[in-house]
Design a protein around this nucleic acid. Structure first.
Lengths: 231, 231
DNA sequence: TGGCGTTTTCACGAGGGCTTGACTGTGGAA
DNA sequence: TTCCACAGTCAAGCCCTCGTGAAAACGCCA
């Protein structure tokens, strides 16, 4: 019943440490010390998640990711050296679900593992059509109408609106919104959210200068006006 | 009740300094001057957190970390050399929960200690909606109503009210209130709390000149009136 | 490869919130 | 009653957050 984590790093010390922490947390741990072995192990053990160092002999983390992703849909957490932009971007592009920069605490890795696995669990099916007041969002058709009037949204705007509509009235922090959009908890400029909200308001607010649908909660985030519910 | 910190460094001067700052912050402090003694002390004192220098005689910080981690799940904060040298030993430093690079200010160490301890013991989940008499505070919506009437609070006012409502009737010192608001009991002007309390009273007291909701406890702090509970 | 729609970033400005310090008010002790 | 320490108040200034427009970066498709 317990989930299996594949830990890959060329430094045995790190592997040992992570193993001990992950096992203490109830996971089954299998290990490898280079990309080639890791690929082999991944095929046979079918891990629920992979933690791997981006820098490894034989086959590096990126190459491993590419290859394993062709075969399995397994979440991957990367261990990167410094917070180098390149590593970060490339890693995420290559399909990592999260990353941790060294030096890191094993506790933090365990926390990320838990978080990614939680996200990977199929969330309870949301109804395909969300309605909040006059706003109707159809996830299967990928369309939005306001008072029967169709509205044209970009993919990101659509995702943000969907997130807000999942729980009307609740405040979503900028971080939560970013995560909902990217599926990845990756640190990004939070002002980006503001920009999307601005654009969204342009499209769905009767008067964008005086928002009544998407409300700003200073110091907290954004939320849908609960008053819409009434209609 | 107070938490125990084990401070390990071969320089007595540093140990003395950290001890004084940590004790001033309410922690119990035990000390050691090398890795061997530290291990012995850790076994007997069961500290809640360890602060140690990575470079020490007899047994260095890394070795200590490895050994102690086999026996206890105690958070560790390492004191390391300058940041530039960090790269070299990045892989080795693994295992600490946080790092402080020398030269450091004792204040910073205390802040890290607090942060790590806070993370290590997440407070029990508070219910999303707090009710005390006619006051309803909804954390998920970030809203407050009094007798059904919505009240508009600033972020700080909201946090303070939430803190008081977590334990109605209990007295919170100004320090505790500051800490709840900032995450850390910043060395701040305590009169600041008074100012926020004043503003809060303006918004939630029927007669702000005669407070019946937020009571002042002379010499101690503030608390919610227990009488509200009755309604 | 070039072009286009989208996303992200950046810098600036406006507004509001927070902090501060001085001053006033008050309760309790002697 | 007097005194002292602590609490309340107020206004000024700093700082932080949010909104915005424009530009850069990116991704995709032809």
């Amino acid at each position: 019943m317990s989930q299996t984590i594949l830990v890959v790093d060329d430094e045995p010390e790190i592997v040992r440490l992570l193993r001990s922490y992950l096992e203490k947390d109830g996971y089954r741990v299998v290990t490898a010390y280079n990309g080639e072995d890791a690929l082999y192990t991944a095929r046979h053990e079918k891990p629920d998640l992979v933690v791997l160092d981006i820098l490894m002999p034989k086959m590096d983390g990126l190459e491993f990711t590419r290859r394993v992703r062709r075969e399995q849909d397994v979440p991957i957490i990367m261990l990167t050296a410094r917070a180098e932009e390149t590593d970060r971007i490339v890693g995420l592009e290559m399909g990592a679900d999260d990353y941790v920069t060294k030096p890191f605490s094993p506790r933090e890795v365990v926390a990320r593992v838990r978080a990614v696995l939680r996200r990977a669990q199929p969330r309870p099916e949301a109804p395909p059509i969300l309605r909040v007041g006059p706003i109707v969002l159809d996830r299967s058709e990928h369309t939005v109408t306001i008072a029967e009037e169709p509205v044209d949204l970009t993919p990101t705007e659509f995702d943000i609106l969907e997130t807000l509509m999942r729980d009307p009235g609740r405040v979503f922090s900028r971080g939560e919104i970013l995560e909902a959009v990217h599926g990845v908890a990756f640190e990004a400029y939070e002002r980006t959210v503001d920009a999307h909200i601005k654009n969204l308001r342009q499209k769905i607010e009767p008067d964008p200068a005086d928002p009544r649908t998407i409300l700003t909660v200073r110091g907290a985030g954004y939320r849908l006006s609960p008053e819409l519910e009434g209609s």
